[in-house]
Write a protein that binds this DNA or RNA. Structure first.
Lengths: 152, 152
DNA sequence: ATTAACTCTATAGGAGTAATAGAAATTGAA
DNA sequence: TTCAATTTCTATTACTCCTATAGAGTTAAT
């Protein structure tokens, strides 16, 4: 009968991106209160430390976090938590929000198999899907993660 | 400066899934008008023929298309084009619509790094995103691809 | 029978993910 | 000034999955 019993192949957000969001959430709780060290964030959030180092470095290059080097150093959030959206982080680590390259705003590419983009039957619908996802992912910010969680 | 010049790593719909949607669109145009052969669909849609064979077979196992074997055989759509959604096809080939396994309806899995799911700060927002994407992808059907494209 | 098509399984190459390792640079403090 | 702690950066590994191809098997029309 060929029934698919299990499928872990699901395309989702990468772990890197998820870890980034969790780390940013930690940093947001500490916003304007100094810096946190990689090792501490790693332990608190169950993220492999060396992997988290890479992630924080990328976030630094994207100017979302800042760092203090050397002994007693660490990372801190530069941007306001309300101005760091899931969309921003997703684009940085996982790329396009659109499901097809030809309907992506930031990562546009022509589909190889498409002879004529204008006559593509799927574009109109996939633009709608992209817009829905884009709006929701832009509205969800790091701040929205913390605003109710500390019974504040 | 370490500027990322190019990134083709974007997570999107797989080619398999895109090819499936294109093939289904072809079959929908021929709905209730007999069958089409793999080779013809492959040529019309610029899809590698042997790859398309696999895809149509999977769609058959999912009871979305039917087939007629032997010489002169081919594939035809079983389901009404209005009842085959992007969500259905996406789930079949690419898996979960949700961005995190822990907020997926059909492909739920616990996040390894999450100690306590109830206290996860991100769940609420990611459920919203999933719901938006789910609704849009369920509303977009194969029929919605063809309804205006033939100036009908 | 022969031909043409679907059915099924296997496999290969390439790409990307997740994670680890280690050396270099920087800073604070003893 | 030396040491220790931390960030910075590059390389590399193991693994998985995607894309595509190949070929043998099965079915049905002529």
């Amino acid at each position: 009968m060929n029934i698919k019993l299990f499928s872990i192949f699901t395309i989702m957000m990468s772990k890197k991106c998820k870890y980034a969001l969790k780390a940013l959430t930690r940093l947001a709780k500490n916003y304007n209160k100094g810096h946190l060290q990689t090792a501490d964030i790693a332990k608190l959030e169950n993220i492999p430390k060396k992997f988290l180092e890479q992630i924080l470095l990328e976030l630094k290059h994207a100017r979302i976090v800042g760092s203090k080097q050397g002994s007693g150093g660490g990372y801190f959030l530069i941007k306001n938590p309300k101005e760091v959206s899931v969309a921003d982080v997703y684009r940085l680590f996982d790329g396009a929000i659109a499901l097809l390259p030809c309907v992506s705003i930031n990562f546009y590419e022509k589909c190889e198999d498409c002879t004529d983009e204008k006559s593509c039957a799927m574009q109109r619908e996939f633009i709608k899907i992209r817009e829905g996802a884009r709006k929701l992912m832009s509205k969800a910010t790091i701040y929205s993660f913390i605003k109710d969680s500390d019974s504040q």
